[in-house]
């Protein structure tokens, strides 16, 4: 029985192999082969349709992911490039501003400081002919020391920070609180019009607020010296320690006006 079974299997197997070899040998000469292949392909295209759609979807998904990856990489490169360009531009602008400021800075010598108006004003050796006009800021050691109050041909008068006639709107840099700096005429500089309870502390820096093109914002004046004294009307007055040495004025620097830079 087993032998009969094995014989039948071998006969069927050998016949299948012979038919296979016959087809393999005869296939180049079979004219209908192409038609049969096309027919099989067209019949199978129906059940294969979901696979074709899935393949296209997967290919699209792959392309989308690849494109996204490429775009992300390009974006990163552009962001880096943009950051570098911004830094380069900032450096160039800063250098340009520095060069312009250097050109506008004019050193002047203090030629007169009268004893009766010691804390109010002094005279410098630069005047109208050197481009000085009323209102220009005057510095010492990088800190505001006063403003030009009158100009003649070869000299000018500067109103000191300690003068009660000079009032300068300022900002406390740490809190952005606005106030007015004014002198008391006897060597002190005061910060006024600060509402009570704003957390102002000694050591906070004070600089100019936006006033005009002649006196740009951000010019350092000094720092708050004490805890302040309430005026009784809801405001506190603080004493300011000026950055400039107001009692040691031999030379000062004038920032000449230039249209455009502080627009």
């Amino acid at each position: 029985m087993v032998d009969k079974r094995l014989t039948a299997e071998w006969i069927h197997g050998i016949v299948a192999l012979i038919v296979g070899f016959f087809l393999l040998g005869a296939s180049p000469n079979l004219g209908v082969l192409r038609s049969v292949v096309d027919f099989v392909g067209s019949v199978l295209s129906v059940p294969e349709y979901p696979a074709v759609v899935s393949r296209e979807f997967l290919q699209d998904l792959y392309r989308w992911a690849k494109d996204k990856n490429d775009l992300t990489r390009q974006l990163k490169v552009l962001q880096d490039e943009n950051s570098k360009l911004r830094i380069t531009r900032s450096v160039l602008v800063a250098e340009q501003i520095k060069a312009e400021l250097d050109a506008r800075m004019e050193e002047a010598r203090v030629t007169l400081r009268e004893p009766h108006s010691w804390w109010n004003e002094f005279r410098i050796d630069k005047g109208f002919n050197q481009g000085v006009i009323i209102g220009l800021p005057v510095f010492q050691n990088g800190f505001l020391v006063g403003r030009v109050s009158s100009v003649s041909t070869f000299s000018s008068w500067v109103e000191l920070l300690t003068s009660p006639a000079l009032m300068i709107p300022v900002v406390i840099e740490e809190t952005r609180e606005l106030g007015v700096v004014v002198g008391d005429g006897s060597g002190s500089v005061l910060l006024t019009y600060i509402p009570e309870g704003r957390g102002i502390e000694a050591g906070m820096k004070v600089s100019t607020a936006l006033i005009s093109e002649l006196l740009p914002p951000g010019i350092p004046i000094g720092s708050i010296a004490d805890e302040g004294a309430a005026s009784g009307s809801g405001y506190v007055t603080y004493k300011i320690t000026p950055g400039a040495a107001t009692s040691l004025l031999y030379t000062v620097t004038i920032l000449k006006h230039s249209k455009g830079i502080f627009r």
Binding site: A16, V19, G20, L24, S27, V36, L44
Partner: peptide, 12 residues
């Protein structure tokens, strides 16, 4: 017929 175009190859 579907993939190779040579009938008999995979059959064999």
């Amino acid at each position: 017929l579907r993939w190779v175009g040579i009938p008999g190859f995979f059959a064999l």
